[in-house]
Amino acid sequence: MTFGIVYIALLMLLLLAGIWTVMTLNLLKSAIGLAITSAILSLLLFLMAAPLAGVFELSVCAGLITVVFISAISLTKPLTGTEARARDHSRVKRFILLPVIIVAVAWGLYVMHPHLDLPLPAADVERDVRQVFWNIRRIDLVGQILVILAGVFGVVILFKDHPDTKGEIPRTPDAGRRTTDKDRPDTKEGTPA
């Protein structure tokens, strides 16, 4: 009984944190809301006897991904006051329908009352996650290594310096300047006097 109450309470908290993450106007608060959602999800995973997944969720999703988001937010230029006010006004108009849609979908699911004909737990199932991870799902590890390598190379290529931004001194004063319409002789501004 206690399990059910805690479980439902955590599910409600998870949904509320998710809706707050989507609806809040501040981007930083949105990233923090995502971290709170991850933390609640990790509590749910602990409750459902998945401690290893819960630890991963808590450390990687609530920790590392939040750091990545906050770094990305701090590396980008913030909006000015006028832009932010215009953005807030437009965003409130676009997202005011979300709670209504959530309530409508919840009501629809409650009325339909989907009967889930779920199978009972198998009699002889694997219990040790290490055995499954290292023996049965071994090919997943290869996939994970490849995905991590792809991500590393992707980030390296994305942040690679271009040759013209390395601080090289141009040989002539005009060598590093980009061509504009003024340099073209056929344009009005570039026509020599």
Binding site: M48, A49, A50, L52, A53, L118, P119, L120, P121, A122, V125, E126, R127, D128, V129, Q131, V132, F133, I136, R137, D140
Partner: peptide
């Protein structure tokens, strides 16, 4: 959790 294959779900 429902099917009892929690180890597989965790992986």
């Amino acid at each position: 959790h429902i099917t009892g294959h929690m180890a597989l779900a965790q992986t």
